[in-house]
Computed example of a mutant assay.
Amino acid sequence: MILSPATHPTGWRGHATVLASLALWWALYRQLVPLSEWITSLFPVAPHSHAGEAIAFFFYDVPKVMMLLTLIVFAMGVVRSYFSAEKTRALLSGKREGVGNIMAAGLGILTPFCSCSAVPLFIGFVSAGVPLGVTFSFLIAAPMVNEVALVLLFGLVGWQVAATYLAFGLGIAVVAGFIIGKLRLEGWLQDWVREIHSGANAPDIPEGEALSMTDRYKLGIEAVREIFGKVWKWIILGIALGAAIHGYVPEDLMVRIMGADAWWSVPAAVLMGIPMYTNAAGVIPIVEALLGKGAALGTVLAFMMSVIALSLPEMIILRQVLTLRLIAVFIGVVGSGILAVGFLFNILF
């Protein structure tokens, strides 16, 4: 589709509409917590019961992730209109993947997203033609290491542990993303994502022809319609599963397993963490309770990292973007790094 810049000479109405929409978006986003609490109050359950917490979690996370997905994909669609497929590939070619992995992991640390909240930005990166390995560095770092987790760990177990956790979490994100990038697994993306990533469905933007901002906004809206329509059902399914698990955490069983000195306690903790769903701030209280009951530090950290980096709800959402083979590679690479961190911390601390 070729858009003509002469269609909207001024574009001021488009700017005003976008600014008003952003203001409305922000106003709604700030009301998500009270909205989820109000909806929960309509159910015949106690607010802090297992069912109440699961319901509140669901009605908070669904609109949050949907709103993030809409905003990020729209922004990426607008940004993408400035680059042809060739320009994007030239800017983010394989020779820059090492630097790109570090930058993406650093960005992930600064964004306090849970795993499912990081997925919309991951989709936006992929749709904009960013190398696959770079996008994975962000996807791994965003939930696994952020300022909330670092501050809470600092207060709980001291700066040495927090700094070591930061170094290893960042290292896992960079190395895992780099390895996935070098494996050249773009062919293992879902067909519709691979077409977007390769530029097959990119808008026809002739070189040297300037588009108006109104036209660029339209391209952003088209990107939202295309991507949102493909993934929204699976986002709801993944968050519904995560909310159910969030309300029923078997803490006593976890303490019994993670308090063991056997070598299998670390992989067992990782396997236990995968079906659960929360963010770094949400899992820290569980970490504190487990450590207080005698669980090993490395085992607990491995559990925490698996909860926020390899959650089952995240995998369900990613299934609409990645094939099962690529998800298996992602789990294998990240899981290996988490196991290494767990064993190392048990030796050092």
Rank of each mutant, 00 (worst) to 15 (best):
329 V>W: 13
39 I>F: 10
37 E>W: 00
257 I>H: 03
122 F>P: 01
216 R>Y: 06
280 A>M: 07
187 G>S: 14
84 S>Y: 00
160 Q>Y: 06
269 A>K: 00
33 V>W: 03
26 W>A: 11
336 S>K: 06
202 A>H: 14
45 V>R: 06
296 A>H: 09
3 L>A: 13
278 T>N: 13
182 K>H: 14
24 L>G: 11
164 T>D: 01
147 E>Q: 08
24 L>Q: 10
47 P>H: 06
113 F>Y: 15
192 W>V: 06
37 E>V: 00
319 R>F: 13
195 E>N: 13
84 S>M: 00
102 I>L: 15
166 L>K: 00
313 P>F: 02
81 S>W: 04
125 F>P: 07
98 G>F: 15
108 G>D: 05
71 L>R: 12
173 A>L: 03
106 G>E: 09
35 L>W: 15
265 S>C: 12
86 E>R: 13
216 R>V: 09
101 N>P: 05
58 F>Y: 14
331 I>F: 15
132 L>C: 10
348 L>D: 03
204 D>A: 04
198 S>R: 13
112 P>F: 06
96 R>M: 14
187 G>W: 02
192 W>I: 06
288 E>A: 15
54 A>C: 11
63 P>E: 07
29 Y>R: 05
162 A>H: 03
52 G>M: 02
160 Q>C: 01
102 I>C: 11
89 R>L: 06
197 H>C: 01
115 S>W: 01
132 L>N: 09
310 L>R: 05
6 A>T: 15
312 L>C: 01
262 A>P: 04
133 G>D: 08
161 V>C: 05
9 P>T: 09
